[in-house]
Design a protein around this nucleic acid. Structure first.
Lengths: 138, 138
DNA sequence: TATGCACCCTGTAGCAACTACAGGGTCAAG
DNA sequence: CTTGACCCTGTAGTTGCTACAGGGTGCATA
C-alpha cells in the first residue's frame, strides 16, 4: 500500500508517517520504481500501535522502547522483564487515573440527566499525589 | 505557598507552572510585596489535575475544556453533558487500550518468570481500528 | 552590616513531536 | 497530452514545554 492509504487507515497525516520513519519508529519500506514508499500489513500494524500508544501519553522514546520489546527476539529475559515491568506500572497508574475521571464524568452526566446540575468535581479526582504537603493535614 | 513549593508538590518545573499561567490553565495567583507568586490549596489541586490529565494524553485544549466543566457553575446542563460525554467516550477508549497493553505486558513478564521468553505480541494489542482495510479480509 | 546562597522575577531562545507548505516528479483518466 | 490526485525531499511553523540570561529578594551567618 502507498503512504496515503496507510495514513488514512491509521488516521495519520502523511507527513507524520514520514516523520516516524525519520525518527526510527517505522522501518523504511520498500520503494516502487517511481520511488514511492510501499507498505505491507506489518507496517500498518506497527503504525497503528505507535499512534495509539502516543495517544495514551507515551513519549516517542517510550514507544520506541515498547516496540523494542516486540522486535528484539534475542534479548535476555531479565532486560525484557525490567522494561516491561516499568511500563506495566505506568500503565496501571494511567488506568487508575482514567477510571477516576470516568467515574466523575459519569456522575456529572448522570446528574445532568436528572436536571440537578451537580457541580463538577473532576479536578478533585486527580488531586495531588501523596508526597510533600508541608504539614497541615485536612 | 511559593512557586517552588507548588512545583515540587506536583513534580512540575517552575517554568512549566508559569507557562500554564500564561496559557490560561492556572489562574494568576496573588503576589507578595516582593512580587512573588503566592499560591493556595486550590492552585495545588488544579495544577495536579492539569499534570495528570496531560500525562494521560489530553491536549492542553482538552484540559482547558475539562477544567471549564468544573469552573463554569452557570453553564446549561446540555452543554455540560455534551462536553462530558465526549470526554467520557475518549476516556473509555483509553482505558480499553491501556487494559490491552496491561494484559500483554503481564503475559510477557509472566513468561519471563518461567524463563520461556515468549515473544512479545504487544504491537498486536493495539492493532488497526476497524475502519477501511481496502478489501482483503483475514 | 555585608555577603553569600537559594530562591523569585521577566524575558527569549531552544527542543520534541508534529504539521504545513514550497517546489517538483508520477500516473491513470479523459 | 493535459489535468488532478497523489508521491517525493526539504524547510519552516506550531505546540507544549524546558533552559538560560540578566536581575531582584530574603534569610542566615561571619
Amino acid at each position: 500500500m502507498k503512504i496515503g492509504e496507510l495514513a488514512k487507515a491509521t488516521a495519520t497525516k502523511v507527513e507524520t508517517v514520514r516523520f516516524y520513519e525519520k525518527a526510527g519508529l517505522l522501518p523504511p519500506p520498500a520503494r516502487t520504481d517511481a520511488n514511492y514508499r510501499s507498505y505491507g500489513p506489518a507496517h500498518l500494524q506497527r503504525l497503528s500501535f505507535i499512534r495509539r500508544a502516543r495517544d495514551l501519553g507515551f513519549s516517542v522514546d517510550a514507544v520506541r522502547d515498547l516496540l523494542a520489546l516486540a522486535d528484539d527476539r534475542g534479548k535476555p529475559c531479565g532486560a525484557v522483564d525490567a522494561i516491561a515491568s516499568g511500563h506495566l506500572a505506568e500503565v496501571e497508574r494511567k488506568i487508575a487515573d482514567l477510571s477516576a475521571m470516568r467515574e466523575e464524568l459519569t456522575r456529572v452526566i448522570g446528574s445532568c440527566r436528572h436536571n440537578t446540575v451537580a457541580d463538577c468535581k473532576i479536578i478533585e479526582t486527580l488531586g495531588p499525589r501523596v508526597a510533600a504537603t508541608t504539614e497541615t493535614p485536612a
